[in-house]
Design a binder for these strands. Structure first.
Lengths: 354, 354
DNA sequence: ATGAAAGCGCTAACAT
DNA sequence: ATGTTAGCGCTTTCAT
């Protein structure tokens, strides 16, 4: 139907919600007084008035109109979260952490889905600016440079008017103007390196990597880190199959790898658990076994990883905490990132080689 | 210092974002004209003016201030979604569906977490009303009556001013005023009943149920439906262990059941996959095997269910679609629910008994 | 077709 | 301590 949206309902017989005016009148005080007791900053109103206002508000079922407050104040109590896919457990955990923090501060979080489409992301970014949110959290992993240009411009605009931007992933491009962007850095390279070392120690010598397209930082860092650590122990990364972050992508990449032939005792490293889980299903679908035959490990430690059999070896990342920190990075002025400990968790999918 | 805004940042050197005024001035037209071309309803402005305004907007990087539009229009372009826990895949899928729809209509979705705490839910509901959202989607499963009173009042208030409320689950309490609430009904009882029948046909005769507290509709419906169908085939539900919707709760309930003793070939029905997954891990932790020894089935078919080994038998619910429908229920005036087909999916966790 | 001006509900100087 | 009164940025009659 038509844009701009005529009100949802009939529009005529809608009893307007009680306004501050209504409350003030009902309580027999001025608008200002009502505002002060209901929303203003603490002590200032005499007990008698205060009580009358409160009673009136209660009686009328008054709720402050957030939009009006926002236009008057110049900023709204919202934190905008950008994720690639909210159904993905990785983002789900992060979102939960952000929501937890926002809630403590009475802020509301809006969430937008980029579907990993850079163009879409830019559109969203622009629209989001219109919300004049307190802050913006970019959790959607992107290829940093591909579209850095226009996104960067959008972000700058964002900060220019006072909004705070925090991004997941690595430090922003080399001083290209994103100076104000705070980043939640997860030690992808370090965790993966340690994982590689541990896998080599377990006896593995040959690995296949499954990652996203080149240029996607998270993927690259994990793949490189793993390769480095694995090499330290004498292992070599034979080949890398690329796709994206979806489970099906992991399954497809693994199927392709299997097609080319995969020797027993080979280790498959999926750049994320979701992808590794997909790979596991492809291995089974091909009639091979996960573990003794083909070993698999991932990264993130989403909850499903502990449920599969054999359970998935991975690197635990405190995602919920990371989300919470992203929130703090927005509201705390002197924020400095607290380290997010990543930890290798060895499970059944990578049995020790005799 | 400037009025109306001690903004989050330094406050002094913040270049205000371009306003409609700025654009109008820059384009040499009136505020009204600028408004019309930038946001107003279609054709009305002469091509020449229209172009100048567009160019000016572009040059200034203008983005409409959503809050201001909302106060002027009387309603904001937001859909508020209430879930118990966004990290739970059940809600994650629903949220994805809602987001998909909202996005198509240029609406933003805000999400709030109830943590399954009724009191918290009421607080949130009240705050949400202040956002004057277009609609409200209640996906957090609640015990319908426990706190129906105050929640109901809140919802009524919500609708009174023109907001649409849609709830997941069953028809609202018996005509208690929730008349306007649209519901997305998922055939929990029917799906569970069919599942029970199928399980009996597989040869199972004795089952243990794991559910939430009595009074929680979703749980009750599934448990009852299953029991009914299972009985049809000659099976009996021996006992029910209660907890909540969390994975750990499922594990605890299962541990308790194991403590009391569980005969081989018993079937465990978890009211949700997440709970069933928790039960599976408890079974393994106790040194028993899932499948041939103790069979397990769940409900929802979240993605992890297909990944575990043995894969979990369950009832597939089109959650993403359900979320999308919830969205449609808010924006479509003559909305009527399209059926959401549930389907039993038998997998390895419930092998046929010889 | 365009512009002037009156709100929308609320906040925050600025008086008193 | 309370009330007055400008705004906030935008939409929308109502004239012209």
């Amino acid at each position: 139907m038509n844009p701009g949206s005529p009100s949802p309902r009939a529009a005529s017989d809608i009893p307007h919600a009680a306004t501050l005016q209504d409350v003030a009148r009902e309580a027999g005080v001025s608008l200002a007084t009502a505002s002060r007791v209901l929303n203003g900053s603490e002590r200032k109103v005499a007990g008698a008035f205060r009580e009358r206002v409160e009673r009136a508000a209660e009686a009328l079922g008054y709720t402050p109109n957030v939009s009006a407050q926002a236009t008057a104040r110049g900023h709204s109590p919202v934190i905008a979260l950008l994720v690639a896919d909210i159904a993905d457990p990785y983002f789900g955990q992060i979102a939960a952490g952000v929501a937890r923090g926002a809630d403590e501060h009475g802020l509301v979080v809006t969430i937008s889905i980029t579907e990993r489409d850079p163009e879409r992301e830019n559109r969203i970014l622009r629209a989001l600016r219109g919300q004049r949110p307190q802050g913006l959290i970019l959790a959607a992993s992107r290829a940093d440079d591909a579209e850095g240009g226009s996104a960067s411009a959008e972000l700058e605009a964002f900060e220019r008017y006072g909004g705070r931007v925090v991004a997941f992933g690595d430090l922003p491009g080399d001083g290209d103007g994103d100076a104000g962007v705070r980043t939640i850095v997860i030690d992808n390279a370090g965790g993966a390196e340690e994982l590689g070392r541990r896998m080599a120690a377990l006896g593995y010598r040959s690995a296949i990597g499954i990652g996203a397209a080149e240029g996607v930082r998270t993927s690259d860092d994990r793949l490189n880190g793993f390769t480095r650590g694995f090499a330290t122990g004498g292992g070599t990364m034979d080949r890398i199959h690329r796709g994206d972050f979806r489970r099906e992508s992991g399954a497809e990449a693994m199927a392709a790898a299997l097609e080319e032939g995969v020797e027993p005792s080979t280790l498959v490293f999926g750049m994320s658990d979701v992808v590794a889980l997909g790979a596991m299903s492809a291995i089974r679908a091909a009639g091979r076994a996960v573990g003794a035959d083909i070993a698999v490990c991932g990264f993130d430690d989403v909850s499903a990883s502990g449920d599969v059999t054999p359970a998935l070896t991975t690197v635990r990342v405190p995602l919920n905490e990371a989300g919470y920190q992203a929130f703090r990075a927005i509201v705390d002025d002197g924020w400095i990132q607290a380290p997010l400990p990543v930890e290798v968790v060895v499970r059944g999918s990578t049995p020790g080689l005799a």
